[in-house]
Simulated scan of single mutants.
Amino acid sequence: MDPEVFRNEYWERRPLRIPRNDPRHFAELLTLSDVDALLSRSGPDFSNIRVVSEGQETPVSALGGTDRLEMLYERYRSGSTIVLNALERRWDPLTRLTTRLSAEVGARFQVNAYLTPGGRARGFDPHYDNHDVIILQAHGTKSWRLYGMPDALPLRSQRYGAARPVPEAEEEFDLEPGSVLYLPRGTVHAATSTDTASLHLTLGVHPVLFPALLGEAVQDLAEEDEALRRGLPIGFASDEGRRREAERMIEGLLEAVRTRLTPRELTDRAVRRAVSIAPPVLRGHLTDLERMPGLDGDTPVRLRPDLRWRVSLTHEHVELAFHNKTVRLPRHVADEVRFVLESGHDPFTAASITGDLDRPGRLLLVHTLVREGLLTVG
Rank of each mutant, 00 (worst) to 15 (best):
L94C: 01
T262F: 06
G284W: 10
A278Q: 08
D2R: 15
R68E: 03
L101D: 03
T287K: 14
R331V: 03
G161P: 03
D225C: 04
G344V: 01
H206M: 15
P347C: 04
Y128K: 02
M249T: 02
G241K: 05
V111E: 02
I134F: 09
R273F: 14
Q56A: 14
L213C: 06
G297L: 14
A321V: 03
D296M: 12
R96S: 06
L214V: 09
D288M: 12
G204M: 05
D298H: 13
H367F: 10
I234H: 13
S193M: 11
R260F: 05
L232E: 14
L199P: 00
L29T: 00
A107V: 10
P330S: 00
S33N: 12
L153V: 05
G64T: 06
S102Q: 07
I18W: 08
E224L: 09
T98S: 08
G118C: 11
A222N: 00
F236V: 05
P207R: 06
D45R: 13
P300R: 05
T202C: 02
L363W: 02
A321R: 03
L136Q: 01
R244C: 03
L101C: 12
E88P: 05
R122S: 04
D22T: 03
V60Y: 02
T95D: 06
Q110D: 13
E168C: 04
R100M: 08
R13K: 02
A212K: 06
L313Y: 12
E104L: 15
V180P: 05
E9W: 09
E226M: 12
H131R: 03
F210M: 10
V166P: 00
G186A: 04
A197G: 07
K142E: 02
L374T: 00
N21Y: 13
L39I: 04
E171M: 12
E4V: 10
V83E: 03
A278N: 11
P233M: 10
L289A: 03
E224K: 09
A227G: 09
V337N: 06
M149T: 05
D298N: 06
A113W: 09
R244N: 03
L295Y: 05
L363K: 00
S53I: 15
E171G: 07
S53Y: 15
V188W: 05
Y128T: 02
R248F: 14
D335I: 11
